[in-house]
Design a protein around this nucleic acid. Structure first.
Lengths: 152, 152
DNA sequence: CGCGAATACCTTGTGCACGATGTAATCGTG
DNA sequence: CACGATTACATCGTGCACAAGGTATTCGCG
């Protein structure tokens, strides 16, 4: 049987390398807009539906407050969004796009197709890859939460 | 046509999320050994072939000196490897495993199978995923290097 | 109503990841 | 052999990513 420690046999490393390679592809495109990839992801979430609490953004992106809080602060400092406490629940901070945040969507309109072109995936294999990766994410997440001996 | 900005349609986000989910799965396993995932990757490279220059490790993992230098320094501080200048070329730093670094391979022997189990991929789909991700990495890398107007 | 638990968020500390810059050693070429 | 270019590596600054710990607000239940 093959050596289980061989780097080339590991899907995890291929995943790790691919993820960074894709982010590298985004970097120059987003850099012109003054964005990083995680910041762009937050905007994607808000472009889909604006004025959402931090919690929802975190759930959509699988990111915790420790990552989001400073990231949202930087986006606020750059004038793309605002933060406001909900009057009916002062614990909740609602994130809303500014006008500049909304127009950024137009400025970024060329990004998805440019990336799609760079990755060279046709529509079918893209969907298949997404399916495989979702299954893998779910499987890994369940395992991380449950450990060796899961309990309800 | 579907909105190109939809998060759910983006292979890149699925990739980004999956990569972090997998790293999360490694964390508790490697944590018991006092390792992080990138540190584990460096050990994988050295277990395959010991006493290699920093440059080669970087090429194997697609990591630059800015990432590797401090990472290797931490592994050295933890007693897993040593750094030594090559006498015939004083620019080159050769990384060699210590005895502790070699025995770590035995201590980590359960890791690959545990991860394999957690991801729930059979051998065939694992290989197929690796192939897809390699193609994607190559495509993204070529695009990043070449940009819109590549020149030799 | 009172009060302990839960919720939503923030902050701090550590460790990647990458760009930019710096330095010493080596190479290549005239 | 001299000297500019290249190579191998280190350092610094910024921005994630996550764990751990903290605060203020709200909820639930007796």
């Amino acid at each position: 049987m093959p050596d289980e420690f061989l780097l080339d046999e590991q899907a995890c490393f291929a995943l790790y390398a691919a993820s960074r390679a894709v982010t590298d592809t985004y970097r120059p495109l987003l850099g012109e807009l003054g964005l990083t990839y995680p910041q762009y992801l937050v905007l994607l979430v808000l472009w889909e539906s604006d004025a959402r609490p931090v919690k929802e953004i975190g759930e959509a992106l699988h990111l915790d407050y420790g990552t989001l809080s400073p990231l949202l602060k930087r986006l606020e400092a750059n004038g793309l969004l605002t933060r406001a406490r909900l009057p009916e629940d002062e614990r909740t901070v609602v994130i809303s796009l500014t006008e500049e945040g909304r127009t950024m969507r137009t400025r970024a309109s060329a990004v998805p197709s440019a990336i799609g072109c760079a990755l060279g995936l046709d529509d079918a294999s893209r969907r298949e890859l997404i399916t495989t990766l979702r299954r893998l994410t779910a499987s890994a997440t369940a395992y991380s939460l449950g450990g060796f001996d899961a309990q309800p």
